[in-house]
Computed example of a mutant assay.
Amino acid sequence: MPEKMEEMMAMLRKPAKAKAAQRVIEVLDFFDEQHRQASVMDIARKYNRPQSSTSELLASLVDLGLLYKDAASRSYTLTPRAAIIGSLSQPRLVRDGSLARLVDDLRSQTGHGVVVIGMVGPNAQLFRWKPGVVSQEAVPGSGLAGGAQDRLCSTAAGWLLLSTLPTQRREGLLRRLNAEAADEDKFHHGEMSARIEECGRQGFAIGPAGFGEDASLVTILLPGEPHDRPMAIGFVYRPSDMIDAKALAAVLQRSVQHRMTAASDIGALSIANAA
């Protein structure tokens, strides 16, 4: 209950425009493989919003061409415009759908949940989450949702993302993270720096999933991303003696290399055909 109260107070302190923008993103984040359509109440319950204002928001998104509304079922689905906005300026891995196919392939190979995580300021942000296919008791996920953020130092993906930064910038960011952390979340600066350096040297990271999950993560960097906007992809799993994390890292590396090679071949073929 105290956490809910803090969230509500934080929302009240936000300017009206910021709250409106957040609510639009929440609606778009709601839709995924498990939620291809939604009612007003689905959205309102998910984000603890009033039904009346949620209905008005969805109607506005219909007018903007971001949602379809089914007159019979009164449910909403995303339009192609929602997927296209912003995608044309993204790296080809995102733009041509290769990243989405890679996530699907990795989940099919192992049954584990797959995450794509990027760096947004001092935080790691979950860009994509696809739950695993093993029994529900073993599937992490309550804190994993599109748009979720956690401190870079609190997740193995964050360690790997931090390893891409120039040393001076990284050290400054670590000092900031420690200064802003609650006492129980502070870390030993030297140990964290050494851990990040090791992740960069070995090319993968194994550690906490973060995002409020009692789960583990093995992750690698996606190649070809802008140096100041790195992304990591990885498997989320419950720790077990039956799971070989380094073997999972090898699966990630092989699959990413295969997908990148396939995308390059398709790109080269398209250029040749155009010529």
Score class of each variant (00 low, 15 high):
E3F: 02
G65A: 13
A16P: 02
E6K: 12
I25D: 11
L58M: 10
M8R: 15
F204Q: 04
A262H: 10
Q257G: 14
A138R: 10
A138Y: 09
H35L: 06
R101E: 15
Q253V: 02
I271M: 14
L64T: 09
G118R: 05
R13Q: 15
A138P: 00
V27M: 03
R128G: 02
A20M: 05
A274I: 01
V62D: 12
I84H: 13
L66Q: 08
P2V: 12
M9H: 05
G111S: 09
E33T: 05
H189W: 05
Q109C: 10
F127H: 11
N178A: 13
G234D: 08
M119K: 12
G132H: 03
A249L: 04
G146K: 12
L173Y: 06
A215L: 06
V115W: 00
A205F: 00
V120Y: 05
G172H: 11
A100W: 00
L67E: 09
R169D: 15
A124V: 03
Y47S: 06
Y237W: 12
L173K: 06
A262N: 13
Q136G: 09
A249T: 02
V62H: 11
D105F: 00
A44N: 10
G207H: 04
L126Q: 03
G158Q: 03
G203F: 01
K14N: 14
G172T: 07
V116A: 03
S216T: 07
N48T: 12
C153W: 00
D185C: 08
L57A: 01
L12I: 07
L248K: 08
S108A: 15
V256E: 04
R23A: 10
A138L: 07
D241V: 11
P2R: 08
N178G: 11
S142W: 05
E7W: 06
P91R: 01
I84R: 13
S270W: 00
E180L: 07
Y76V: 04
D183H: 07
A215F: 01
Y237I: 08
A82V: 02
V139W: 00
R23K: 14
F31D: 06
A275T: 06
E7Y: 01
D228P: 06
S52P: 01
Q34D: 11
D42P: 05
H258M: 12
V251I: 15
T164E: 13
R229S: 13
A232N: 01
Y47F: 14
V114H: 01
